[in-house]
Amino acid sequence: MSSLSLHRLRVIVPGLLVAALACSCKGEQGERAAGAEQAEAAESSSDPSAPAQAEAEPEPKEVATPEALPSELPPLPEVLATVGGREIPRREFEIRYRPTAEKLLARRGDGRIPGAFEAMQRRKIIDGLIWSVLLELEAERSGVDVSPEDLAAFEAEERLHILDWPAWLARINQSEEIRRGKDVDYLRERALLEARVGALSPSEDQLRAAYEAQRDELVVSEPVIRASHLLFTYGPRVGDEKIQPLLPEQREAASEGEKARWQALALSRAKALRAKALEPGVDFNALAEEWSEGPGAFRGGDMGLFPKARMVPEYAEVAFALEPGEISEPVGSLKGFYVIKSFGRYEPGPLPFEAVRADLVRQLEREIYDAGHEALRKELEARFEVASPALDQARALEAK
């Protein structure tokens, strides 16, 4: 599924989102457990004269309190903000702040968190929490929300481009729950924006107007091409699954035999996907988005416009030798094997519209979204009263 298709969101009753997600997590195991509970209940109630057994009270468990983090700032209040009558407790900030702060402490080694850093984190996190509640309140008020199907599809697509999901979450200091909340916020905002302004993608007329406005700047002094690629990295493989690029120390620790096997596996995978790319009607960028193991997979392997000198020689020589529309044989490199497709070659001088159309789409989508976000934020802050001395304080501290 393309990312644009995920933006055509359904309108549902807001409360159904959480309930449906909870139901969808049960699956076969949950149904079996429910059936077992019903059978047990029926068996225990078969003798109406049987005395009820008192349930033993569980012994209280000690919950470890996280060690307090060092701080150079005044302590935060228990309630960080009130949004439309809903309170945001301090613990919501602490859950999000602690992983980042602990990493900073480990990196610094002096047991100190600079006040400027904490002030910035307070401002960003509290502001994000307020925005999340505003979106939730507006979804409840308007009935415009995200369906469980759209959320599941978005999460599946998001994970498609991240080979080691738990490691990625740890790197960005997020739990599964926090990440899902951010995804819901993103999709809710898009749904609310589309309900107000329609499509968030630019029209052809808007693209043409943007091109004309920037025409004098869209000039190159040397030949450039636009190309996309599939990348298949070196490492142990199981079937057709994508793999995570190896760390330098992992490559160094591997034997020559292992390296040779990994190279052969990557080459075999590159040949198989090249054959797929050559089939009639296959969208190369969609194929790269699904199967490429490079960091640019999320944008369909599109490398944009580039001169020959910007790429490593083995890549550039092949890419610049291709005719527009031609797909290369696998190209070996230190990273793995590339399969490259040329989408156009342009000589020095003004660039034609088709050369920069994809870049203009991304530029205008960002501008449309940013303008819509600003207008929506003002609208919701006017509709739902927001009070947050903690956010005001964080902004003042950050400005010092």
Score class of each variant (00 low, 15 high):
Ser255Ile: 03
Phe232Gln: 08
Gly296Leu: 06
Glu398Ile: 00
Tyr315Thr: 03
Asn285Ile: 04
Ala260Val: 02
Val63Glu: 15
Glu329Lys: 03
Glu92Cys: 08
Tyr338Gly: 08
Phe117Cys: 10
Gln53Ala: 13
Leu267Gln: 13
Ala210Gly: 08
Val13Asp: 14
Val312Pro: 00
Lys341Ala: 09
Ala139Thr: 01
Leu397Pro: 01
Pro51Leu: 11
Glu149Asn: 11
Gly257Val: 04
Gly198Leu: 05
Leu391Phe: 09
Ala319Cys: 00
Val133Gln: 07
Asp370His: 09
Ala371His: 02
Asp110Ser: 03
Tyr338Cys: 08
Met1Val: 10
Phe298Tyr: 13
Val63Cys: 05
Ile113Cys: 09
Glu323Val: 07
Thr100Asn: 14
Thr233Arg: 10
Ala195Glu: 13
Pro223Val: 10
Pro99Gln: 15
Leu69Thr: 09
Val318Gln: 01
Ala170His: 07
Val224Cys: 15
Glu217Asn: 10
Ser44Gly: 03
Ala101Glu: 14
Leu193Pro: 07
Phe343Met: 06
Ala64Pro: 04
Asp205Pro: 00
Lys308Met: 10
Ala152Gly: 04
Leu80Met: 01
Arg196Asp: 12
Phe232Ser: 11
Gln393Gly: 00
Phe306Met: 12
Gly109His: 00
Leu273Asn: 00
Pro89Phe: 03
Glu347Met: 05
Phe298Gly: 05
Pro307Asp: 11
Leu169Lys: 02
Asp370Ser: 14
Pro99Val: 15
Ile368Tyr: 08
Phe298Ile: 07
Ala254Thr: 03
Ala199Asp: 14
Leu376Ser: 10
Lys259Trp: 00
Trp291His: 07
Ala270Pro: 13
Arg226His: 01
Glu149Gln: 15
Lys271Cys: 14
Leu322Glu: 13
Ser44Tyr: 02
Ile368Asp: 11
Gln363Phe: 06
Glu55Cys: 01
Gly109Phe: 03
Lys26Gly: 15
Ile340Leu: 05
Pro348Lys: 05
Pro74Lys: 06
Ala33Tyr: 02
Glu140Met: 05
Pro89Asp: 06
Glu249Lys: 03
Phe353Asn: 06
Arg196Cys: 04
Leu397Lys: 00
Arg123Gly: 05
Leu69Arg: 12
Pro74His: 02
Arg215Cys: 02
Ile162Gln: 07
Ala54Asp: 08
Ser221Phe: 12
Val312Ala: 09
Lys259Arg: 09
Ser142Met: 07
Asp164Tyr: 02
Leu391Thr: 12
Ala116Tyr: 14
Ala56Lys: 08
Leu207Asn: 03
